[in-house]
Simulated scan of single mutants.
Amino acid sequence: MKRYLFIGLVSALLLAGCEQKPSLQKYFVENTENKEFVAVDIAPSFINVDKVTLTGEEKAALESFKKINVLAFKADSTNQKEFDAERTKISTILKDKSYQELMKVGSGKEGGAIYFVGEDEHIEEFVLFANKKENGFAVVRVLGEDMNPTHVMNLMSLMQKANVDMEQLKPLQALMQP
C-alpha cells in the first residue's frame, strides 16, 4: 500500500512540476510546419569569417552566438483573422516575466520590440518581434550563451563586413516579394 501511495505522490509531483505555460520555443515547434508560416534556422556558419580579421570583441560575440531561429507569418487579405490571433499569441508569450523588454518602436499594433532572456551580462536569448498588418510578422530568436548587448551589436557589425551565406536565408525571400 505504501508503495502505491509513494508512486502516486511521485507521479503527482512530476505532473505538477511540468510547466504548461506557452513559450516561444513551443510556439516555434507548433508552427514550423504550418503553411501560413515560414520557419528558418540559421547556423553560425552563415557568417563566413574565413577572410576577415576579427577583433577580440568580435571573436567573443561569435563564440557566444549559437543560432538564429526565424518564424514569419505572411499576412494577406484572406488571413487577417488568423494574423490577429497569432500576433496576440506572440504578444501574450512575450508578456511573461522571463522576457525583459529592451527596446520598443512603433505602436502595439504595428512596430517592433526587442526582448531578452537572462541577466544583463549573461543573456541566453534575444528576441526581435516585428509586425505590420499589411505584411505580417516575424519573430527572430538569437540564441547564445553568456551574450550581452555589446555582443549583439558586434555580431551585426561582423555580418556587414563578412560574407553572409544567403542560401540559409532563401526561405525568407518569399516574404519579401509582393
Rank of each mutant, 00 (worst) to 15 (best):
Ser64Thr: 03
Asp96Gly: 06
Tyr27Gln: 08
Lys170Trp: 08
Asp50His: 03
Asn48Trp: 05
Val29Leu: 03
Gln80Cys: 11
Glu145Val: 06
Tyr115Pro: 03
Phe126His: 04
Ala16Glu: 03
Ile42Gly: 12
Asn131Thr: 11
Asn31Gly: 07
Phe6Met: 14
Ile114Asn: 02
Thr32Phe: 04
Tyr4Val: 10
Phe65Thr: 14
Leu62His: 02
Glu86Asn: 13
Leu54Phe: 06
Lys67Val: 07
Gln25Lys: 10
Leu94Arg: 06
Val70Asn: 10
Ala85His: 11
Ala39Arg: 11
Val152Met: 08
Ala113Asn: 05
Leu54Pro: 03
Gly112Asn: 04
Leu175Ser: 11
Asn163Gly: 01
Leu24Asp: 04
Asn135Gln: 14
Glu119Asp: 13
Gln173Met: 15
Ala162Gln: 01
Leu102Val: 13
Lys170Ala: 14
Lys89Phe: 05
Lys51His: 02
Arg141Ile: 11
Leu14Met: 15
Cys18Asp: 00
Ala85Ser: 14
Met159Tyr: 01
Pro44Ile: 08
Leu94Trp: 05
Met176Lys: 12
Val10Asp: 13
Leu128His: 05
Ala174Val: 10
Glu30Arg: 11
Glu110Asn: 12
Ser98Gly: 10
Ser107Leu: 09
Leu15Arg: 08
Leu24His: 05
Leu14Ala: 14
Thr55Tyr: 00
Gln20Tyr: 02
Val49Leu: 09
Lys97Gln: 13
Thr32Lys: 14
Met159Asn: 02
Ala113Val: 02
Asn154Glu: 05
Phe28Gln: 04
Arg87Phe: 03
Ala85Thr: 11
Gln100Leu: 14
Glu145Trp: 02
Ile42Ser: 10
Val38Arg: 11
Glu119Gln: 14
Gln80Asp: 14
Lys109Val: 10
Asn154Ala: 09
Leu71Gln: 11
Glu33Tyr: 06
Phe83Glu: 09
Glu101Gly: 06
Ala60Phe: 00
Thr78Pro: 07
Lys26Leu: 08
Thr150Leu: 09
Tyr99Ile: 12
Val139Ser: 06
Ala12Asp: 10
Ala138Gln: 12
Val40Glu: 09
Lys97Tyr: 05
Lys2Ser: 15
Ile93Ala: 03
Phe46Val: 15
Lys67Met: 10
Val127Gln: 00
Cys18Ile: 08
Glu36Leu: 07
Glu121Val: 08
Ser91Ala: 15
Lys104Tyr: 11
Val38Met: 13
Lys51Tyr: 03
Asn69Tyr: 03
Glu125Gly: 03
Ala43Leu: 12
Met159His: 00
Leu9Trp: 12
Phe46Tyr: 15
Pro44Arg: 09
Lys104Thr: 15
Phe46Pro: 03
Lys109Cys: 04
Asp165Trp: 02
Gln80Gly: 12
Glu19Ile: 03
Glu167Arg: 03
Gly136Ser: 07
Phe129Cys: 11
Val38Pro: 01
